[in-house]
Every structure is written in structure tokens, then in C-alpha cells.
């Protein structure tokens, strides 16, 4: 089931939480939603889940419009809200049963589904505990279990891995990857590595607007634009190296590095590559090239640049 969002705007008083946002998520795609705090991620997700109403714009999930077919949409969406609110007095199994009943699951299927969710989310040992006795990681799993209980085709997960330890984060990621094959998933996070590891596509928003949209590779390329390499040469005079490298046509600029006098950072002109020329220049001058590493732009840098 695909999701189409057109010109979504949400005003809180005079403040524009979401500003004319349009994007699509294809069936089976895992979309990572990135942005600094207050960028409008949560607002957008709440609107898709049908909890709050958009000021303007439309959201379509599959064939259904979120505003006019609200109940249908809510039945195909599994939603894990930010902060994962739970009834802390309830037992895990009772809670999952209540959520399943509210999704109007058939009574004879409910027990099977609960059993399955307990297994999938690793709640075997805690299923007869009260939710208030659970640690943050297990509470998060309960939240995920209730989002999945009716086998929804669309999953909206608002920061699903907050409060988990590294092992749990990896487990949850694998779980999301596993179920993501058949489902359409939107997940938000401010951990960039996580989004990179789990998502097919990344959407960065800032101040309610989209600032970047693409795979992590595309985003990196789009933001750096030109090739950048680090080289280390032995047996050479620093000044000679700088002079020779500057004479190469495709080199934009060369920087010496403070920590190691033999290392240099060379940036090529846009769309050009100078790795061959650098190698040849070293051979011609009899320098020993001991290192040549491409410097990749990190997603962190992309993020910082776009959301400044």
C-alpha cells in the first residue's frame, strides 16, 4: 500500500509545524524521516496516523483518504507514537489483547496473533508482567507489538529505538528490515546511522519543509559534488608535492595536514577525477605513494549542512 502526501500544511496558532509538504512512499519501501527537533517529523506522522487533522492538504493511504475514510486508514496502519504511551497498570498480554480488540480482530484469531507478536518481539519472558515493571527496552517492544498486532500493511514508527541498548537496537532494526519486505514503513529517528542502516530512502525535513530526498548515497553525492582524496607520500619534499599537484589540471585545491607532514588532502574540480594524475605524478617524481583514500562525506555532515 502506498502513501501519497500532497501539500500537507499544519498550523499551530501562527506557527507552521509542517509547511506545504509533498512526498510519496511506495509499497514495500522503508522511508527514513530525519530532521532536527521541532522540524515537523512527529506532526507529519501523527497526521498520517489520523490522530491530528491537517490544516491543508491531503493524505492518501492506498485507496483511502485519511480524513474521509479515517477508520479504514486506521485499520491498515500500525502506529507507534513518540514516547510510546502505554497503560502501565495492565499486563502485557492483556494490553495486547485490548489493542487487538480495538482493531476489531476476530476473537478466534486474537490469541494466535498475541502469541506470534510475543515471539517476534521477544517478549516471551515478560508477557505476564505488568507494563509498569518493564524496562524501557521491553516497553518499546510492547509498543512495537501493539503496532504490529493486526498485521498492518503500513507502519508508522516514531523513533522506534529510543531508549534501547545497542543489542536491542540491532534486533529492532533487523525486525524492521524483516517485516519491511511486504510492508510500507515510515520511521523517524535522529540517529543517522540507524536510518542509513534500515531505510531504502531518506527524507530530511527542516522547519516543516523537505530539504533532501533520496538514498543515502545520493544524498552524499548531492551534497559533496566533487571528489576528495587523502594521500600520503614518502621521500618527497612538502613544497614540491604541493607545487606539482597544483599543476594538475583537474585539481581544485590541495591542503597540507597538520598532524602528518607527509599527508595531503586533494580536492578535484567538480565532476572530475584526479586519482590517476596524482598517481602518475608521484611515479614521475619518484615519490612513494603509501596511501590514497577517498574521503566520503558523512551523512552527519549532509544533515548538518542541510538543516543549519
Amino acid at each position: 500500500m502506498d502513501i501519497v502526501i500532497k501539500n500537507l500544511t499544519k498550523l499551530y496558532g501562527a506557527q507552521r509545524a509542517v509547511d506545504n509538504l509533498s512526498f510519496e512512499v511506495k509499497t514495500g519501501e522503508i522511508l527514513g524521516f530525519l530532521g532536527p527537533n521541532g522540524a515537523g517529523k512527529t506532526t507529519t506522522m501523527k497526521t498520517i496516523a489520523g490522530y491530528i487533522k491537517p490544516t491543508e492538504g491531503t493524505i492518501r493511504v492506498g485507496r483511502y483518504n485519511v480524513e474521509t475514510d479515517a477508520d479504514k486508514v486506521k485499520q491498515v496502519i500500525g502506529y507507534l507514537p513518540e514516547h510510546n504511551p502505554l497503560y502501565s497498570d495492565m499486563y502485557v498480554v492483556d494490553y495486547l489483547r485490548y489493542m487487538a480488540q480495538l482493531q476489531l480482530l476476530r476473537a478466534d484469531k486474537i490469541n494466535d496473533r498475541i502469541y506470534e507478536m510475543v515471539n517476534v518481539c521477544g517478549l516471551e519472558g515478560e508477557k505476564h508482567k505488568r507494563i509498569s515493571e518493564l524496562s524501557k527496552g521491553y516497553r518499546q517492544r510492547v509498543g512495537l507489538a501493539q503496532a504490529l498486532i493486526h498485521d498492518p500493511q503500513v507502519l508508522i514508527l516514531d523513533e522506534p529505538t529510543t531508549g534501547l541498548d545497542p543489542n536491542q537496537i540491532i534486533e529492532i532494526r533487523q525486525l524492521i528490515r524483516k517485516i519491511g519486505h511486504e510492508k510500507t514503513i515510515i520511521l523517524s529517528s535522529h540517529i543517522l546511522a540507524e536510518v542509513e542502516a534500515t531505510c531504502d530512502r531518506i527524507l530530511i525535513i527542516n522547519k516543516g519543509r523537505i530539504v533532501a530526498d533520496g538514498t543515502s548515497d545520493q544524498l552524499r553525492k548531492a551534497s559533496s559534488g566533487c571528489e576528495c582524496v587523502k594521500i600520503t607520500v614518502e621521500n618527497a619534499d612538502r613544497n614540491d608535492v604541493v607545487r606539482v599537484m597544483q599543476n594538475i589540471d583537474t585539481v581544485e585545491l590541495i591542503d597540507t595536514m597538520k598532524d602528518n607532514p607527509d599527508s595531503f588532502e586533494i580536492q578535484s574540480k567538480e565532476g572530475e577525477s584526479s586519482r590517476r594524475a596524482i598517481f602518475n605524478a608521484c611515479v614521475e617524481n619518484g615519490w612513494v605513494l603509501t596511501e590514497m583514500t577517498p574521503i566520503e562525506t558523512k551523512l552527519e555532515d549532509v544533515f548538518r549542512e542541510l538543516t543549519k
Binding site: A49, Q75, Y79, P85, L86, M99, L102
Partner: peptide, 9 residues
């Protein structure tokens, strides 16, 4: 928790 309830049908 009202958010949990109202995002169910």
C-alpha cells in the same frame, strides 16, 4: 494513551 486509542478505528 489517548493517542493509542484514537489511532485505532
Amino acid at each position: 494513551t489517548i493517542e493509542m486509542l484514537l489511532t485505532k478505528p
